[in-house]
């Protein structure tokens, strides 16, 4: 492969683009190429974990900072590692397997530049059915629990999204591994969380997850993530999440 550099990482970057990858040699070059154009001072951090197909080599050749972990870290853990390594004021999170045109990435960076703390993708997946996937249901329910029904199914689970350094400090890099928890910390701590732009990542997502016994194994992990997120919400806001129950005369119940 021609090793033409696509990006020159800035010494003092404004935007850090964080791309966790596993075996994504087919798409990683175009993901980097698009990400390089979001800002003039940009650094691209690729977290290659458990890669056996040379993804890391391709990313390095394209000019990205590559952090290599021989073992798979698991879903979204790369976001934590990337966020810790990032030097920019704005952190833009992407996936290595979904190339998104830079025109669809700049709105997130722009929104953060203009004062939004957490700028999210407005895409919520197929919701026009009678029965929806557990993940979609959980995202909607979490926003209702957070008293942000206006966000519908918008969540930090979905890429692309961008946050500023202040938001990173409040959310904590560790929480980024469990995106619903990060989402709760952002909203419950009063950060300005907004859906800023629509990028359809459902139809472009080529990844076919392996189904075991007709069940999606990640579905249960993500449901668990949302339960964990509800747990952290209840820890912050109390057992009814700040919803008072004045009208019910509980003294009659004993």
């Amino acid at each position: 492969m021609k090793a033409t550099k696509l990006v020159r990482n800035a010494n003092r970057p404004k935007v850090s683009v964080i791309i966790p990858v596993m075996n994504e040699r087919r798409t990683i070059r175009s993901v980097i190429a698009q990400a390089a154009n979001v800002h003039s001072q940009v650094e691209i951090i690729v977290i290659a974990n458990g890669s056996r197909d040379g993804t890391a080599r391709i990313a390095r050749a394209a000019g990205a900072r590559v952090l290599v972990y021989p073992q798979p870290l698991g879903h979204d853990v790369g976001r934590t590692i990337g966020a810790k390594a990032a030097k920019g004021d704005i952190l833009l999170f992407l996936d290595g397997d979904i190339p998104i045109a830079s025109a669809n990435l700049t709105p997130f960076v722009k929104a953060v530049e203009n004062g939004v703390d957490v700028a999210l993708n407005r895409y919520t997946g197929p919701v026009h059915h009678m029965q929806v996937h557990s993940v979609i249901l959980a995202k909607h329910a979490l926003n209702i629990a957070l008293a942000r029904p206006d966000l519908k199914g918008v969540s930090m689970t979905t890429i692309p999204h961008a946050i500023n350094r202040g938001a990173l400090r409040i959310i904590g890099a560790g929480a980024l591994s469990v995106p619903p928890c990060a989402h709760v910390r952002a909203v419950a701590n009063g950060l300005k969380v907004e859906a800023v732009h629509h990028v359809n990542v459902g139809s472009t997502n080529p990844r076919k997850r392996k189904r075991i016994d007709g069940k999606d194994p990640l579905e249960h992990v993500i449901l668990g993530d949302h339960a964990e997120a509800i747990h952290s919400l209840l820890t912050i806001k109390g057992p009814r999440a700040n919803r008072i129950d004045k009208i019910r005369r509980r003294e009659w119940l004993v």
Binding site: G74, S177, P217, L223, G224, D225, A227
Partner: peptide
């Protein structure tokens, strides 16, 4: 427990 019956089987967590 916080994750109910849905254990996290995939992650190596970093704090």
């Amino acid at each position: 427990g916080p994750r109910l019956t849905f254990a996290d089987t995939v992650r190596t967590r970093h704090s």
